[in-house]
Simulated scan of single mutants.
Amino acid sequence: MSNGNSPEDERPIEVSPDVSEDVSEEARPSIGRALQQARIAAGMTVDDLTTATRVRIAIVHAIEADDFAPCGGDVYARGHIRTLAKAVGLDPAELLAQFDAAHGGRPAPTPAAPLFEAERIRPERRGPNWTAAMVAAIVAVIGFVGFTFVKGGDDGPSEASVAEGPQSTSGGSASPSAEAKKPDAPEPEASDSAIAAAPRDKVTVKVTATEGRSWISAMDHNGRRLFDGLLKEGDSETFQDDEEVNLVLGDAGAIQLYVNGKKIEDDFQPGAVERLTYTKGDPQVG
């Protein structure tokens, strides 16, 4: 009697005597079959796997059926395979090697672009503080008027008494200029828009995983791969090119973008795959 698996799952693989030594390699479970068996062994449903990885249900079903077309290309398929394998406790390297062998291999990786010096956050230059200047001018005027009244007190006691006010029995009173002084207004904090001083002659894109983890891919304008991997929550990567930066976000809802020093406010949905292109100047989605 079967313990929950179909008859096909339990049927032994028959090997003909005249088959070559590569039979053991061919008899290895397919990528989708291996992921499905590992998921079942881990006691996870497809819904559980989708919740844990944010890979859509339809794509999980397709990959377990060895149909990688819904992934949108080999690059995206590799990212999904890596994510699903880690979630069910398999070694992604073995499955990726099996995928590459069946799909022409993976292009040689290139190092990620170095972080540019302007990545250090610097506040943008602020204009003059007109509020503080106005307060200082008012204090100066009041001080000048008070000094004039006090100076005029030498010609007659009546003017001095008006300028100085009633004398206290303790023997002293504060001068009008001292009473008129007001504390300078506090200087405003640096603007929230002062994220980074990005060079104007280049495209600069900073990617941060803020709402979970996401697989991302980045290329320059020549198609050279700048990055291909998984960002965990809190991780950041920065890319730079002379013309444009092309991004693919496996889970756009988990990503926050800063392009050319400006925060991108697009409302990306959790689990959505986004393909984006950014150029120099004010960020525009290609």
Rank of each mutant, 00 (worst) to 15 (best):
D201L: 06
I216H: 03
T204V: 12
S161C: 03
R200N: 12
P157D: 15
A252N: 05
S173H: 10
R224D: 13
L226W: 05
S236R: 13
A252L: 08
M219I: 09
A218M: 04
S170Y: 10
F227H: 15
N246Y: 02
V162F: 14
P166Y: 08
G152M: 15
G153K: 05
V205F: 02
S161A: 15
G153V: 04
D242R: 14
P157C: 07
R200I: 03
F227T: 10
P186V: 07
T238E: 13
E265M: 15
K262S: 09
K263L: 08
G229M: 10
A178C: 02
K151H: 10
F144Q: 06
R213W: 03
N260G: 08
V245Y: 02
D192G: 13
Y258R: 09
I195L: 10
S170V: 10
A178E: 08
D220H: 12
R225Q: 09
A190G: 10
A163E: 11
T148M: 15
E187P: 01
E233I: 03
H221R: 10
D241Q: 04
A197W: 00
G261M: 08
D235R: 03
A254T: 00
M219N: 12
I264E: 08
G250K: 02
T204C: 13
I195S: 04
H221Y: 15
L247C: 04
D201Q: 14
A160W: 12
S236F: 09
F227C: 12
N246H: 08
S177F: 10
V245L: 11
A174N: 06
R224G: 14
S236H: 13
G250W: 08
S175H: 15
G234I: 07
D251V: 01
D235K: 06
D184C: 00
G172S: 08
T148H: 14
S168H: 11
P166N: 01
M219W: 15
S173Y: 10
S236P: 05
T208F: 07
N246L: 07
D192A: 15
A197V: 03
A196V: 05
R224A: 03
F149G: 15
L249T: 12
G165H: 01
P188S: 02
D251E: 04
G250I: 01
V248W: 01
S191G: 11
D201A: 06
S217W: 09
E243M: 02
F144V: 11
K232M: 09
A160G: 13
T148P: 03
R225A: 02
L249K: 11
S177E: 15
D184K: 13
D251R: 08
G171K: 00
T208C: 11
F147I: 04
V245R: 01
P183W: 09
D154T: 12
G229E: 00
F239Q: 07
E243V: 12
K262C: 04
E237T: 07
E164W: 09
V205P: 08
A254G: 11
R225F: 02
S175Q: 13
A254H: 00
E243T: 13
T204E: 08
D220K: 06
E265N: 14
G153P: 01
V150S: 10
S158C: 04
R200S: 14
V203C: 14
V248Y: 00
E187M: 07
D192L: 15
F144G: 02
A185S: 03
H221K: 05
P176Q: 06
D201R: 12
A160V: 01
V162S: 09
E237H: 09
G229N: 09
A174C: 05
E243C: 01
E189Q: 09
E237K: 11
